[in-house]
Simulated assay, not measured.
Amino acid sequence: MDEYARFAGIYDWVVGRPLGSVFRKLILTLPQGGGLLDVCCGTGMFAAMARERGFSVCGLDRSAPMLAVARRKRPGLPLVRADASAMPFGGEQFHLATVTFALHEKPQFVREAILAEILRVLRPGGTILLADYCHPHGASRPAAAAAGLVERLAGAEHHRNYADWMRRGAAEGFLDDSGLNWERLAYGLSGVAGIYRVRQPD
């Protein structure tokens, strides 16, 4: 069963609103030119923002209900239904890839597989922009508690993966373990999320 089927219709209202502030920061970090792949695009909120900025965008997600919302609310947005850990693209097709608030909800082996696939489809010297939970930086206790509550309400498996993400060092721990060169560009969600740039080796 698709875990997003039960709340795809209200996702933008419940989750999209707070994430919008992160997306607005993220959009400012996009380098100019080239094709953009929005991995685990959900209802297409960020992909649509990038399209409005003039990027050639493709959104990819495996959830049919989430993509149905994207097609209804953001008509004409190029979308592909596929598993991000086994993308239906040839190698070196995109200049830029984004993945926002998706890795924390996956098991570690899936996170690693998604990253490997992103690197495969990026051109040499391409860029990955990642936005996801970090260890809270200057965050208020209510903000950190709210993030944990949202993840708990998303379901037991979702919360287990989130807890594992945080235990492993969150976004920065994952990037350190990848061995790639990365930099933090900004914090978001009152300090409980980070925005990171990762460079594909030339």
Rank of each mutant, 00 (worst) to 15 (best):
G138F: 09
E52I: 00
P124T: 13
D83Y: 01
H95R: 01
A48D: 15
V99M: 15
D61Y: 03
V39F: 02
I114L: 09
R120C: 14
P88C: 04
A139Y: 11
L60N: 08
F89A: 12
R111P: 03
R71V: 01
D38Y: 10
R72L: 12
R120F: 15
A139G: 09
P136A: 08
F109C: 11
I27A: 09
M49E: 11
Q93D: 03
E92V: 02
L119Q: 00
S63C: 04
P124F: 13
M49V: 08
Q93P: 01
L67C: 05
R111C: 04
H137K: 11
L60K: 03
F23N: 00
H95A: 10
R71D: 02
L28S: 10
I114K: 09
S85K: 06
V69F: 00
A84V: 07
R120L: 14
L119V: 00
D132Y: 13
C41T: 14
A47G: 14
E52D: 06
E105D: 15
E105Y: 05
D132K: 13
S140P: 07
E52C: 01
E92G: 10
L30Y: 05
G33H: 11
F89P: 14
A116S: 10
P107S: 13
D83M: 02
E92Y: 13
S56W: 15
I27P: 00
S56Q: 14
A113V: 05
A68L: 11
A86M: 13
P78G: 05
G148F: 12
G126Y: 02
P124M: 13
G35Q: 15
L67Q: 05
R123C: 13
K73I: 03
G76Q: 08
L96Q: 13
A144M: 12
V110E: 09
K106V: 03
M45G: 08
G90C: 08
G44R: 02
A102V: 04
L36S: 07
M49T: 05
F55L: 13
A48L: 10
P136F: 06
G59E: 03
V80A: 04
F94K: 01
L67T: 03
L77T: 05
P88A: 04
A146C: 12
A70M: 05
P124C: 13
L122Q: 10
I27S: 11
S85L: 07
F46P: 02
A143H: 14
M49P: 04
A102K: 07
C58A: 06
Q93E: 14
A116L: 04
G126I: 02
G59D: 01
D38W: 09
P75T: 09
A70K: 06
K25H: 02
L130A: 12
V110L: 10
T127Q: 05
P88D: 07
R111G: 01
H95C: 00
L129I: 15
L122N: 10
T127Y: 04
I114H: 07
Q93N: 07
L30A: 09
F89K: 11
F109A: 14
A113F: 02
S63Y: 04
F109P: 08
A50Y: 12
A64L: 11
A97N: 06
E92A: 15
E105F: 06
D61H: 01
G90W: 09
A131I: 04
H95T: 00
G59A: 04
R51M: 11
R81Q: 15
R111S: 01
F55V: 04
A143D: 14
L36F: 08
A68C: 08
A116C: 04
P142W: 10
G148P: 13
E117W: 06
L67A: 06
